[in-house]
Simulated assay, not measured.
Amino acid sequence: MTNVSDIRIAIVDDEPSIVTMLQMVLRREGFHQLYAASTCAEALDLAATVSPDIVLLDIMLPDGSGLELCSKLREYGNPHILFLSAKASDLDVLRGFAMGGDDYITKPFNPLEVAARIQARIRRLEHEAPAAGPGMRLEPGIYRFSRFTVNEAEGELIVDGQPVPCPAQEFQLLLHFCKFPGVVFSKTQLYDKVWGINGQGDDSTVMVHIRRIRERIEIDPGNPKQLLTVRGLGYKLVKETQER
């Protein structure tokens, strides 16, 4: 079982009151390795030094945009990035996911919700069994399909023989489909199984992640052949596999 005190969380926000509030709530939840940065430059220095597991990232920072910072943080590992932003339009949320964010919460927010989403992610990772599901596996935790391979243990996606960067939440979503090829999952089920959130979430979240996965694994993302939409039901990864 994961010890939450071992989880490294970076809070990147230039509002001291928000940082203090989050630190107080997260400490009460048992998180002790908490780090703070108020600018993009400080955040990059922090990432290089401590390699955080989770980043709570504001979008509007004094020296740049958190959206652009998101991709730079990936150079120091593959943290779970949760945007915290006053930008609340559907377009802003979609842009956040498109830039590589794993989650998005709009300000003002309840800090307990932030803590709950972090805890949900930790629980989901704990409960995933490498050997679960009927996916095509070369060895435990490795799933091969017609043009891509997913290595669960190494967090690696290989497409046409080449490693392809894949943000954490997209990787976990693709991994879930790999474990259960041919099974149709509704958006509600995906929120429960992959995001660890009970009930229906924002439709755009799943939609954006599905689109970005298709851009990585499909020859023609606009005409997908592997990760399919089943109208009125949800999504499925087709069973077509290839022995090598």
Rank of each mutant, 00 (worst) to 15 (best):
L56E: 03
G133W: 10
I7P: 01
E170C: 04
A47E: 10
S51A: 15
V50I: 15
D220Q: 05
V114H: 00
L67W: 13
V150C: 09
E29H: 02
F177D: 04
C166R: 03
L44Q: 07
E113Y: 06
E29C: 01
P16Y: 00
P108S: 06
L26P: 01
V206N: 03
V12W: 00
A48K: 11
P79I: 00
L46T: 12
Q33H: 06
R244A: 15
H32P: 03
K193I: 11
E42G: 12
R117V: 06
A48V: 13
T2H: 03
L44A: 03
F31S: 09
G141Q: 09
G199D: 02
V12A: 02
I54Y: 00
T20L: 07
I7R: 01
G201A: 05
I118G: 00
H209A: 11
A48I: 13
D45K: 11
I54V: 07
I219E: 15
V184T: 10
L233V: 15
I158R: 07
R244D: 14
D92Y: 02
M60P: 11
D6C: 10
N151F: 15
E42T: 09
G155Y: 11
P16T: 01
G101A: 10
G234E: 08
G201N: 03
L233N: 15
V4G: 02
Q33M: 06
V19K: 01
S85N: 10
S51M: 14
I210R: 01
C166T: 07
A37R: 00
F171M: 08
I219W: 09
M136G: 10
S17T: 14
L125Y: 07
Q172P: 02
H32G: 10
I158T: 13
L125G: 06
N151A: 11
V206H: 04
Y191F: 14
L228T: 07
P181V: 02
D192W: 08
P221W: 01
V238C: 06
E113F: 06
G101N: 03
R212S: 10
D202L: 09
L56N: 01
M60N: 15
L34Q: 08
G77D: 07
V159P: 03
F177M: 07
V4A: 02
D14W: 15
G182M: 04
I118L: 00
I142E: 14
I118V: 07
C40G: 04
L174H: 08
